[in-house]
Amino acid sequence: MVEFILAIASSLVATCLTVALGWAFSRRVRRSLTALFSRLAGLPVQHVYRRQELASPDLARDLTRAHWIRVLAGRGNELTRDTFSSVWADGTRPQQVVQVLLPDLRSSPHSWLAKREEDVRRADPAFASGFLAEQVRVNANYVAAAARRHGNVSLRFYDLPNRYRLVITNEVAYLTLYGGSAHGRHSPCIAARQSSLLYDLALSLFSFAWEQSSPGGSALEDAA
């Protein structure tokens, strides 16, 4: 257990240093230094994005060729946007297996979702009580409709700290670390290729949350 904790801690330290390098230089230099440092640190990071929203074009491309997709989101707005359009579109290619985790909608003033809403409200006063939960509910209904239409989508709800976003495919993992009161789209995002320590960490985080989650149907009913 001690070795596992040390491994996670060292990977997070290396990740933070990689992000710092990514912010410090021009786009071309950032890519070269990020690749070099990540190899030295044992973290094959593909790219570091200053803001999550800058990763959307690359993420959209990776989603089109994915065999399976796993998403853990703090709100899920991007699930309804162009980035994921290829995932929900009807087509002739083999269906992807899609698993989606969204925050638990069962209302409580002490829930993790309420805590995240309180954090964001410090930077964005428009986040009135219940506003974040309502956005999650709208996005959950969108995913639930896709699940009914395609039959290859599973939706569940997690009751855990709302501090990061994961989008993982069989080839790459995109990890966003929410920065305090900042919106997720304004927080830094890291892309790591399959068979890397950071990719494996993202998979472990998703698997743990999935095991602790509740089915989408019951969570939506409880929130109604």
Results as ranks from 00 to 15, higher is better:
L40I: 12
R106H: 14
P188R: 01
R137C: 05
P125G: 00
S207V: 10
A7D: 12
Q194A: 12
G91T: 07
S218H: 11
V100I: 02
T92S: 14
D58A: 12
E171T: 07
D159Y: 05
L12Q: 01
L198W: 00
A192F: 04
A73F: 08
L101T: 03
G22R: 03
A126P: 08
L220G: 13
A24M: 15
L160C: 11
Q212T: 15
G91C: 05
A224Y: 06
W210M: 14
P109D: 04
L59N: 02
A173F: 04
D200M: 04
S213E: 06
Y178G: 02
A60K: 06
L36H: 09
E118A: 14
D90Y: 11
P94L: 11
R70H: 11
E3C: 10
A147C: 06
Y199C: 08
F206T: 02
E211M: 08
D58H: 03
A35E: 08
Q95E: 08
R51M: 14
S107G: 06
R61S: 11
F84C: 03
Y142L: 05
G91F: 04
D222L: 15
E221A: 13
A140S: 08
A219S: 12
V13Y: 11
S11H: 10
S154Y: 06
R165K: 00
N139P: 00
W88C: 06
G22A: 08
T169H: 02
R28F: 14
S196Y: 12
F131I: 09
V167R: 01
A60T: 00
V2H: 12
I190H: 00
Y158S: 00
F206H: 05
A60Y: 03
T64Y: 01
N152H: 12
L79V: 08
P57N: 01
R148T: 07
C189Y: 00
L201N: 07
V138S: 13
F37N: 03
S207G: 07
Q135T: 11
W68I: 12
A114P: 00
D124W: 14
F37D: 00
Q96G: 11
N152F: 08
S218I: 12
L21G: 04
T80V: 14
S26I: 12
C189P: 05
